[in-house]
Amino acid sequence: MRQAARRPQALVQITALHGVLAGLARKRRPGPRWVAASWALSVLHLGLLEERDRISAADALTLARGNLPATALGSTRWVGVAAIALDLADGRLARHQHTASPFGDYADSFADAAFWTWLTLRHEPSRAVRAAAITAWALPIATVTAIGIRRGTMPDRPRPTLLRPAAAMQAIVAMRRLLRH
């Protein structure tokens, strides 16, 4: 509540964005509950905006990407490619506009984990690929969250510089989904 009081513009922006997303998700599964969970996580992490009092355009793209499972219209054939495009766009925008923040960094990780785990568990027939998805996305998020809760502060995320297994998994899952049709 203190962070929301310090950043009322960010709270309004996040609420408005999630209102639009909820409208798009109204008749879909996982739908409004997914969007509500995204809103709650976003609001609970407003302190990660640090000195900023609003979210950036890159942050909004990241949050939209994280909500693709609830809002993706039509076929899910292209949704993996769309997620990769949004991921590249939000990163480029954050660097170009110098709006990178811990909020955006963590939102990016959560958006990736939520979207790619959902897509893989929901649409991937291979057990090996599903297991790799859990290892690449859900396990690191769960580990960092558990450490954060135990310490009472958010730890730095591990960032391998040479090998990025989650990025490789994104390409594999997106291509398998695209080619399966």
Results as ranks from 00 to 15, higher is better:
Gln13Thr: 07
Ile14Thr: 02
Ile14Leu: 12
Thr15Ile: 01
Ala16Tyr: 02
Ala16Lys: 06
Ala16Gly: 06
Leu17Phe: 05
Gly19Ile: 01
Leu21Ser: 10
Leu21Asp: 08
Leu21Glu: 10
Ala22Val: 00
Ala22Asn: 01
Gly23Thr: 11
Arg26Asp: 15
Arg28His: 13
Arg28Phe: 04
Pro30Cys: 03
Gly31Arg: 03
Pro32Phe: 00
Pro32Gly: 04
Trp34Lys: 08
Val35Gln: 02
Ala36Trp: 04
Leu41Cys: 10
Val43Asp: 01
Leu44Pro: 00
Leu46Arg: 09
Gly47Pro: 00
Gly47Lys: 00
Arg54Tyr: 07
Ala57Leu: 15
Ala58Glu: 06
Leu61Thr: 00
Thr62Lys: 05
Thr62His: 04
Thr62Leu: 07
Thr62Ile: 09
Leu63Pro: 01
Ala64His: 05
Arg65Asn: 13
Gly66Leu: 04
Asn67Cys: 15
Leu68Val: 07
Leu68Ala: 11
Leu68Asp: 11
Ala70His: 03
Thr71Asn: 02
Thr71Cys: 06
Leu73Gln: 15
Leu73Pro: 11
Gly74Leu: 10
Ser75Trp: 00
Val79Thr: 14
Val79His: 05
Gly80Ala: 12
Ala82Pro: 02
Ile84Asn: 09
Ile84Ala: 08
Ile84Asp: 11
Ala85Arg: 13
Ala85Phe: 05
Ala89Ile: 02
Arg92Asn: 13
Arg92Ala: 15
Ala94Ile: 07
Arg95Ser: 07
Ala100His: 14
Ser101Ile: 00
Ser101Phe: 00
Phe103Arg: 07
Phe103Gly: 06
Phe103Asp: 05
Asp105Tyr: 13
Ala107Leu: 05
Ala107Thr: 03
Asp108His: 08
Ser109Cys: 13
Phe110Arg: 02
Ala111Trp: 09
Asp112Thr: 08
Asp112His: 12
Trp116Ile: 07
Trp116Gln: 04
Trp118Glu: 04
Thr120Gly: 13
Leu121Asn: 01
Arg122Ala: 15
His123Ile: 01
His123Ser: 10
Pro125Glu: 09
Ser126Gly: 08
Arg127Lys: 11
Ala128Asp: 08
Val129Phe: 07
Ala132Asn: 04
Thr135Asp: 12
Ala138Trp: 12
Leu139Val: 15
Pro140Cys: 06
Pro140Trp: 08
Ile141Leu: 15
Ile141Met: 15
Ala142Asp: 09
Ala142Tyr: 06
Ala142Glu: 08
Ala142Arg: 07
Thr143Asn: 06
Thr143Val: 09
Val144Tyr: 00
Thr145Ala: 11
Ala146Ile: 10
Gly148Leu: 06
Ile149Asn: 15
Arg151Ala: 15
Gly152Asn: 11
Thr153Val: 13
Thr153Glu: 15
Pro155Gly: 01
Pro155Leu: 02
Asp156Trp: 04
Arg157Glu: 07
Arg157His: 11
